[in-house]
Write a protein that binds this DNA or RNA. Structure first.
Length: 230
DNA sequence: ATCCAGAACCGCGGTGCCAT
DNA sequence: ATGGCACCGCGGTTCTGGAT
């Protein structure tokens, strides 16, 4: 795994952030995530040991406020920052450069998401036409019940479930919504999906991790539908 | 030694359900 | 309508272990 901060750099940057004002650990994680446009957020297992270490060295101290530890820099910590001012400045310029690259990447991801939506829309239209020409008897569209990312930890990949196995019936979601004409209901759901995803993609109110996950989800969904409808 | 991810734990507030 | 209760999600933290 590649490290974002080199040896001792994260420690220095934490000092710099605390020099701007007292913050609790979780706030520091969010702040770093924000500065890296959401593409990098140090884990708790990184931040808290670092803060504990800084405190042991006397560079920061903490106050317990409402059950949280609010860390603030000490005079010794400020002295270290002054002493390593050049290093702090170069670190900040490196971060600015990284963020610029990330902003460029974010633009590419946006294009990818829009392209995926377009492809998905075309494939679903073709599938709808096909189903109208000769819709099979019995419960329509088995396997449509994907469940999305695993809830809970928020960690790991997109976590698509494999969905129902062949022969299993989908009793939730789709079947609850479908009307008498499965093809018409399919069209309605398709239109709803495309409209909503397009609106979300154009709103710009999303983070880069969300975009990455959305792109993966769209590719995954498209692959699943290809397999299903071929 | 340091960076890092992820699981697990704890506490708190919000929410839904049920009995009154 | 209201009070009590259980459940759930989230914020915050600690711990463990792998990678460099």
């Amino acid at each position: 795994m590649t490290t974002v901060f080199g040896h001792g750099r994260l420690r220095l940057y934490l000092l710099k952030l605390l020099d701007d004002g007292p913050r609790h650990g979780y706030e520091l994680i969010r702040l770093l995530e924000e500065r890296f446009l959401g593409l990098y957020a140090p884990s708790a297992g990184t931040i808290y040991p670092r803060l504990a270490r800084l405190e042991a060295e006397g560079l920061v101290t903490h106050d317990a406020v409402g059950g949280r530890k609010v860390y603030r820099i000490t005079e010794a910590g400020r002295a270290e920052l002054r002493q390593r001012a050049d290093e702090v400045a170069s670190l900040e310029s490196e971060i600015r450069a990284s963020v610029s690259d990330l902003a460029k990447l974010a633009g590419e991801i946006r294009s990818e998401v829009r392209g995926s939506v377009r492809d998905l829309k075309q494939e679903l239209r073709a599938a709808a036409r096909e189903s109208r020409r000769g819709s099979p008897p019995g419960p329509a569209y088995p396997g449509a019940g994907f469940s999305g990312p695993a809830a809970g930890s928020g960690s790991g990949g997109p976590g698509w479930s494999a969905g129902p196995r062949a022969g299993e019936r989908v009793e939730q979601g789709w079947s609850a919504a479908q009307g008498d004409d499965p093809a018409a209901e399919f069209d309605r759901q398709l239109l709803l999906f495309v409209t909503e995803v397009r609106a979300l993609a154009r709103s710009g109110r999303f983070t880069e991790p969300q975009l990455r996950t959305a792109a993966r989800l769209l590719h995954g969904a498209l692959d699943g539908l290809r397999r299903l409808l071929r």
